[in-house]
Simulated scan of single mutants.
Amino acid sequence: MTGARGTLGPLSGGAWVRLLSQAGLSGTLLLSKGERATLFVLGEGRVQGWDVGAPYGLGEVGGRFAFWPHAERPQPSLEPRYPKAAGPLRALPALLEEALLSTAELNVRALFARLAKEAFSGALVFERPHASGVVVVSRGRPAAAALEARAGLLYGPAALRPLLEGEAAALSLYPLPEPLCSSFLALVLAFEAGGAGGAPPEAATGTLVGETGYAFMRGGEVYLELLTPPALESGFVPACEAPPSLPLPNDPTGWEGRRYALTLRGRDALDPMTELSMRFRSEFGRTGQRALEGFRRAAAAEAVAEALGLEAGAFRTLLERLEAEGFIRRLEVR
């Protein structure tokens, strides 16, 4: 059995734990709902839990789960999601994963605006044929970035601009509960600084880097192991309790002259016979529908705004939302 993710629906967390145990499965289980998350290790009739942030109540329904089968181990354990990475991506504790539209069909700046509104904490991963990178977001704000390319590893602002403005990239979002997000953020900053510290102090919260991988600790106790040869020297990295702020590169000017066209999803949204069309009209109204109609044939943003009689600020908000949700795509100037 390979790993699995999903929602519990009407099933409680406790019922799901019992089902896995009765099936004789061993492995690591994550149960989460909102900001609450608990990791369990199952094996030979044993079930033990470690809270990651606020505890998840086993009597709750409607949560999410992720399960990774493995031989019995003393703590919850994961294999790396990006085992070939040479930098911080290999240290990412990938629990819950959400695949997004690629940057060819999604406005990344609008995505960051959404993450800020949701006070999201976790990692946004960019994957290209010859480069990949990660932006760590803490409570809705970008805090660190790393880019791995043929030329080597880049960090901070030097990594952020190529990630946002380079060629099309696949995007994945990894929500991380506290303190796991602050621990991974600290790891990225440690990579940038060139190494980890010494031995962990008593009741430490952070990450112990050793020969077998990364051991995430809270109050001196290991609650999750990421089993992979580490790409960082051995030592302890305390969790980052005061996340830095990494501003997005200055927004390029001249957006009014950019040309856009409908995506397949945008064309479906204009087809009155589709369910998507009904949802679109409900969420975007007549103005949104008229905007899509304006992009039936590739058109400049300014021309569509003038046709709708909208001032620039109001139309730009609509434009970024349409792009972020994959209804239109920006055309490259050749």
Rank of each mutant, 00 (worst) to 15 (best):
A54C: 02
E306A: 15
S277K: 03
G27L: 13
L100V: 01
L308K: 09
L173E: 04
V17N: 02
A305Q: 14
L185M: 08
S32G: 10
L173P: 07
A151W: 03
V134A: 05
R161W: 04
L160H: 14
L147T: 08
S102D: 12
T274I: 08
P230S: 04
F126E: 04
E241A: 15
A261Q: 08
E323C: 01
E35G: 10
G57E: 06
V41L: 01
L164A: 08
A170W: 07
T287E: 09
E332V: 11
A158Q: 13
A168V: 13
A104Q: 05
W68E: 08
L20N: 04
G34D: 02
V108D: 10
L92W: 03
Y223F: 15
L25M: 12
E127L: 13
L227A: 06
A145T: 13
L276S: 12
L227N: 07
A86C: 04
P74Q: 10
G254H: 06
R128P: 03
A4F: 01
R329Y: 14
L308N: 05
L19I: 06
P175T: 09
L264R: 15
T205M: 01
F315C: 02
E178Q: 15
F40S: 05
E293D: 03
A91V: 02
E97D: 00
P200E: 03
E306I: 08
V136T: 13
A158V: 10
W16Q: 10
V333H: 15
A305Y: 12
L19E: 12
L39Y: 02
A54K: 14
A193Y: 00
G14E: 04
P177F: 00
